[in-house]
Amino acid sequence: MINEENIQEEKNKIMIKFDNVSKTYKGDFMALEEINLDIAEGEFISVVGQSGSGKSTLLKLIYAEEAATVGEVYFDGNPLSVVRKKNLSAHRREIGTVFQDFKLLPRKTVYENVAYALEVSGAPDEEIAENVPQILDIVGLTTKAKKYPHQLSGGEQQKVAIARALVHTPMIIVADEPTGNLDPIASLEIVRLLIRINELGTTVVLASHDKDIVDKANKRVLVLENGRIIADYPQGKYKIS
C-alpha cells in the first residue's frame, strides 16, 4: 500500500500545493476558505463555479498576483510567500497566463506581441527570432504574424495570447475564463488548443463557467462555491447542484 503510494508520487510529481489556504480581501471579504489542493505535473484541471466563487482568486494565488492571508501555496516545492518577495519575475516566466480580455498590446503586431514577452525578460535577439515563429506555428497563426490585434477575430486574438504565454516554455498555463469573450466555435478551438498544449506536457489550470468547454475537456473538475471546494471529480463533467 505504502509502496504503491510512493510509485504514484513518483509518477505525478506535485507541482502546486495549497496548504490550508484562506484569502481575505480588504473589507473582510472572504474569497477563499481553507483550501487544500494538489495539482500534479502534467495535469489538466478545470476550476468551475459561479462568479464570485473564488476561481480567479485561486488562479491569482498560483501566479502570485495575490498572497494567501492564511496558509501557504507551494509551487514546485517553493513557498510562494517567499517567491513573491524575492523572485517574482522568474516565477512568472514559469507560468503562462491567459485572460478573458486577451491583454494584447494594440500597437504591436502579432509577432511583436509574442516577441515582447521575450524582450522584456532579457532574451537575446537570436533566441527571439528563432522561438517566436515556432510558437506562432503551434497556435496556427503563422500567416497572421504581421497583423495587428484589431485585424483579428476574438479567437485569433486569444491564440496570440496563448502563444505569448507559451513563449517562455512555462511549466504551467493558467487560463482565467479564456473563452469568456468568444463564440462557441472559437471557444471550442481554444479548448482544443489547451488540450493539445497539455498533451505536449504542460500543466493546464483552466477557470471557466462555460459548461460546454469544461465537458469538452473531460478532465479533472474542481467545483468552488463561496470560496470553498465543494467537489473534486478526477475526470468528469461540469456539475453544480
Partner: peptide, 17 residues
C-alpha cells in the same frame, strides 16, 4: 498601464519595468 501589467505577467524583471 497596459504594457506594465503585461510586462509583469510575462515575467519582466523589475529593472526592465
Amino acid at each position: 498601464k497596459q504594457e506594465i501589467e503585461i510586462m509583469r505577467l510575462v515575467g519582466a524583471s523589475n529593472m526592465f519595468i
